[in-house]
Design a protein around this nucleic acid. Structure first.
Ligand SMILES: [Mg+2]
Length: 239
DNA sequence: GCGACAG
DNA sequence: ATCTTGTCGC
């Protein structure tokens, strides 16, 4: 259950960039998924009242997409947002929320890029390495790369490849008819084709796939509090 | 040097 | 990301 820390998070810009280049070499873009029964969505928001980073993880059954678990984890904000270094700001708290899960997900969808990143290590790829679980990056806007906007159909399900430096790093996917597309890219332990398949399979008629949509909502709901831990992995039970 | 730039 | 009410379109 516990994962041994891969590295330090509070790094200077230069060290963070060097680390990304190193970690990117370990990314696996082949499918290493077993049967998928649980899919998780993660996201982070700022809790102004607490001046804290508020990360959320929502576990859904697959393919029913029913909510099975929800957790929140708050901690002091560590870094400002810097394009290309998002994982150093959001991943630590996301991992904190993730560690509260009773059931380990078979797949994780992240609000941000997978390998569609300048150094091929967006937050979804980074989290995949840390958690050792297949991950998919589901970003709402472009960070890097180009695509043929004219070729992209307006119907839900259509998509076009996202290219960067002659490489296909992801896909621009229309998840809802006549609505701005999503930028999908594999994170770790999964292929682009399979990533697109699961994102569409997790759609409920909204632009965002259900895992990410639920996590986004929970991370922004400052009124939702983590329910008292149930018995099961606690050490103390009542007298 | 200039423009782009996940959340 | 966040600021924020109504408004336009399916
Ligand atoms: Mg987010």
């Amino acid at each position: 259950m516990p994962r041994p820390p891969l590295h330090e998070w509070n790094l200077k810009t230069e060290a963070a960039i060097a680390l990304q280049n190193e970690l990117a070499q370990h990314i696996v873009l082949e499918d290493h998924l077993g049967e998928v029964h649980y899919v998780a969505g993660v996201d982070m928001a700022i809790n102004e009242e607490h001046e804290a980073a508020r990360a959320a993880v929502v576990l859904l059954s697959y393919p029913d997409l029913e909510i099975v678990e929800r957790h929140i984890y708050e901690e002091p904000i560590r870094m400002p947002y810097v394009p290309g270094l998002l994982s150093f700001r959001e991943a630590p708290s996301v991992i904190g929320a993730f560690e509260q899960l009773r059931q380990r997900p078979d797949l994780v969808m992240v609000d941000g890029q997978g390998i569609a990143h300048p150094r091929r290590l967006g937050i979804a790829a980074h989290l995949g390495l840390w958690l050792e679980i297949p991950t998919i990056g589901c970003a709402k806007s472009l960070l890097t790369g180009k695509y043929n906007k004219e070729e992209l159909g307006e119907e839900a399900g259509s998509w076009v490849p996202l290219i960067h430096r002659k490489e296909t790093i992801g896909a621009v996917v229309r998840t809802r008819t006549r609505v701005n597309p999503l930028f999908i890219s594999p994170g770790h332990l999964i292929s682009l084709e399979t990533s697109i398949r699961y994102v569409l399979a997790c759609g409920k008629g909204y632009r965002l796939p259900e895992p990410t949509r639920q996590a986004d909502k929970l991370s922004k709901d400052n009124d939702w509090v983590e329910p008292p831990a149930e018995q099961g992995q606690q050490m103390k039970l009542w007298p």
